[in-house]
Design a protein around this nucleic acid. Sequence first.
DNA 1: TTGTACGCGTTATCAC
DNA 2: GTGATAACGCGTACAA
Lengths: 342, 342
Amino acid sequence: MDDGSTAPASPPTLYDVAREAGVSIATASRALNGSARNVRSENASRVRAAAVKLGYEPHLSAQAIAKGSTRTVALVVRDVADPYFSSIAAGVTEEAQAAELIVTMAVADGSPERELEIVRTLRGQRPRAIIVAGSRVDGAGTRDALIEELAEYRTAGGRVVLISQRDLPFSTVMIDNHDGAARLAVALLGAGYRRFAVFHAPGEIRTSRDRHTGFLAGLRGSGVPEPLAIETGFTRAGGYDAARRLVERGFEDVEAVFAVNDVMAIGAMTAFRDAGVIPGADVGVAGFDDISSAVDVVPALTSVAVPLREAGLSALRLALSDVSHDVLMPADIVLRASTPPR
Amino acid sequence: MDDGSTAPASPPTLYDVAREAGVSIATASRALNGSARNVRSENASRVRAAAVKLGYEPHLSAQAIAKGSTRTVALVVRDVADPYFSSIAAGVTEEAQAAELIVTMAVADGSPERELEIVRTLRGQRPRAIIVAGSRVDGAGTRDALIEELAEYRTAGGRVVLISQRDLPFSTVMIDNHDGAARLAVALLGAGYRRFAVFHAPGEIRTSRDRHTGFLAGLRGSGVPEPLAIETGFTRAGGYDAARRLVERGFEDVEAVFAVNDVMAIGAMTAFRDAGVIPGADVGVAGFDDISSAVDVVPALTSVAVPLREAGLSALRLALSDVSHDVLMPADIVLRASTPPR
DNA sequence: TTGTACGCGTTATCAC
DNA sequence: GTGATAACGCGTACAA
């Protein structure tokens, strides 16, 4: 077919290495992988030399199929560019490197269908574990389908770990959304705030809902009026938009805003300022997650600190251990200048 | 060996599906993978039914070894949690999903040795392409080793694409660091600034060096004094620290600071403020990258916008195309309140 | 249209 | 210690 001028250039195989070293393929395998130390050292070094000379690198797929197991873990997140998920991803990859595992990452983009499809393809990789970081959305048949897919994966010997809320029957690294938000509410009450608005995402997003209801729970019994709820996107743009709408509506009846995550809160702060409203002075603002930029914004953002990187670390550790339980990541309230005492 | 109470639970294979459907393994393969449409539709549906019933998912490693190619691309970054890299990663994964490719990600953590080691293991995956996002560091033998490793991968049929500067002999998506910084310098001169400090990273970091020298080049001929150069880390903490040092030293002779990336600039702004120095008013601050938080910081940060996500998209597209050339991502100066005209 | 059989690169089980 | 050789799960000539 080809004119054959250039070879198809396929990578060297173990067979090539063995031939180069003048030994059998079996010996070459042993020398390189060394499941047993029973190779004459002279031969071993010849093989190693041949390997580097040829630029040989073992074919992981071939190893996987021969050994019946991979050194791969799969991670699915909603959006890598979001600091929330990239922090988790950083934790997972860090722990993976330590365990000499390769991590493959997929982005669900907030779509349950996409998420399901991703888990399906990922299963084909036969990864040691699949870690799904909180893009979970309630309702729809996709939820059951996802459960089934993950369950099949598990019965086939895979480990699955979820990060966020325990709303699916799998080991999960839980973020203390409800209680964290409740304690934030109490802290804000303590700072003298009594009239609130909550910027939240649509109800199918579990994380948003838990933080929202948690906040309300924290307020309960204090006698403060029911917070104004403004629904918007779970993103910076969503926060910006909600704040803009709040200003247009008039915000005389709200002293502080709780946005269910920091990027929303930060977007809201900018929107406020763009509208001539000074965050911290004219209106308090609080978020959730305590992403790193929370301290670089002005005024510094009150938030609920969640050890995201550690959550990633624990998730993989949990996946690799053979016990199956849950882990709760603590949430710490951190009051900053965006909610000065009043 | 085992008491056999619970089966080892290995995933169903194509063979199981074939048996369940009452056809040969070849027919099953054809029905599911469908390289040709020559399967009686009745059989085809039986096979598909059997597949879903058994929860079958093709073993990607087995397919890879049988077909001789994977549907995988590898991405190596310095730090996922850094918005610079996570934006690139977002672009790469987005394009990958579109091409139905799985992306495996590794973190080099700023260590050339680690980077080399990563590329080596990644080669074992036999990915379609390896994309290395600018953690390149000059000097040391690791550079040549990396070149050789990537070259071997390429001659073995792999595609390699670099993101950042064209300092290695491979297709690269170039960020216009030098020229962007030069134009920023000109813009700042135009805004009336004449005495500068530059916060830069150690010289081995190419990106930092290029932006630094580019800035100096932009100043050249204008007759302004040589900028004060402060070396620090390439991170937010580095920026914070540099600013602190500058304040301690006294900054009467500097009107504006150019930090070679935005996270450094943002860290610097916070440090200035912590020291009672108002960014924008007492000292101008400019960064590079135009990460999303640049507009959420106060005052909004002057920066050089680089389409990072697009860089990721192009990188993968370039890797998949069979031409081998370079792509230059434009850099746009965006003047904001952190460098008001004076 | 379908099934048999071989090959992909590797590990593991044997004999030697 | 070493070398054949049979797996591993799948694709695909080739023959039927």
